[in-house]
Write a protein that binds this DNA or RNA. Sequence first.
DNA 1: TGCGGTATTGGGGGAAACCCTAGTGTAATT
DNA 2: AATTACACTAGGGTTTCCCCCAATACCGCA
Lengths: 215, 215
Amino acid sequence: MTIINSLIMADDHELVRSGLKSLIQQQFPDTPICETGCGAQALALMLQQQPTLTLLDVTLPNMNGLDVVASARKSGYKGKIIMLSMHHWPKYVARAWLNGADGYVLKDSAFEELLVAINSVMKHERYLSKGICSQAVSDVLEHMGPNQDDLLTPRQRQVLQLVAEGHSSKYIANQLNVSLKTVEAHRSSIMNRLGIHDFAGLIKAAISLGLTQVN
Amino acid sequence: MTIINSLIMADDHELVRSGLKSLIQQQFPDTPICETGCGAQALALMLQQQPTLTLLDVTLPNMNGLDVVASARKSGYKGKIIMLSMHHWPKYVARAWLNGADGYVLKDSAFEELLVAINSVMKHERYLSKGICSQAVSDVLEHMGPNQDDLLTPRQRQVLQLVAEGHSSKYIANQLNVSLKTVEAHRSSIMNRLGIHDFAGLIKAAISLGLTQVN
DNA sequence: TGCGGTATTGGGGGAAACCCTAGTGTAATT
DNA sequence: AATTACACTAGGGTTTCCCCCAATACCGCA
């Protein structure tokens, strides 16, 4: 039987977290579960508590799950990480892999599959959800440099995500603890790099990069 | 104590359904719960089984939740309907109201709030999730005819499309041969009507209204 | 015919964003 | 060890946008 000492769960919808927590608690009654709805807090909790297992939604406010994984690994987090996502796009899966995730489970999976994933990663195996074409993921990985293949730097993606969530540069500057001017400089460099000259294009780029959703 | 004879739950993600089912089952152990992940099947089940209560996600494959509500009511479904949605936009809430929903609960709510919503609608009351500005919904309802395209005036659509294409208000003013201030007034009234408070939301609204495309 | 609502038009002032320029730190290259 | 490249940081000055307010024009309705 798999034993999980502690668990952190990050999802942007509290109802979803509650439901998942209920299901997991039934399977692992003795595991303390800590939950959060935002990426930055998830990262902080991971580093503070070093939980045995972290369940991370990909689309999170503040900082998306893929960046959380990268930052956590870079900061020395050693626990297992399973991504929860509704996206089956190979690009996302490959990015999760490279950033240091151990499992990738689609939200359109049965709970039993999540249990299989948990057991797999706790045995130091990787798990890829059914319904994801692993060949396509391999292909993407081939054409994907080990790091920094993306168009934007982590900081730029972070800023772009916050912009696309509708926050002002002032608010973003407070969130990131930098100057207003710094945020504006990031915005500017993002637009230069993507060849965008207006706000609308910025939002559309964020959508097509998966940093935010239309609705 | 509220008694629910039967319940149908529709959500596009099986993991979410499982979790929610687990929570609800704990509260209503004797209620049979039927679940589905697609809108068309949800509609069919509602008409066949006439459940006491239906929980409907707004974003569903095949047929979105708002259309399911409209069709179900038109076909004589008499049970209660609670919408589950991640969208707080007044536009969506107003549409749900007009189509015949009894409750509207954000996915970013505690499970306890869903229970309050269930108890409310079973007592023939309407329930609106916290975090939704009911005044904004009322405002939208005022300006909302029976068909969906009355949300914006032709001029507003025209302006919104140009905005979403990335043009500045100044350029738009020149294109339309009106004052800069007029265009800005249009932008303002569009945002008021849709319950939007930032530029990002404006672009996303234009996309979901089909006025522009992501790429 | 008059009345109310709203579509469309416009202004002023304050806040936010954009363009240009530039310092610092880090990592890879030569 | 020196150089190059670039991510991240930041300021000054200009342009653009957002909120409160108002005038005219149009359309349905009593």
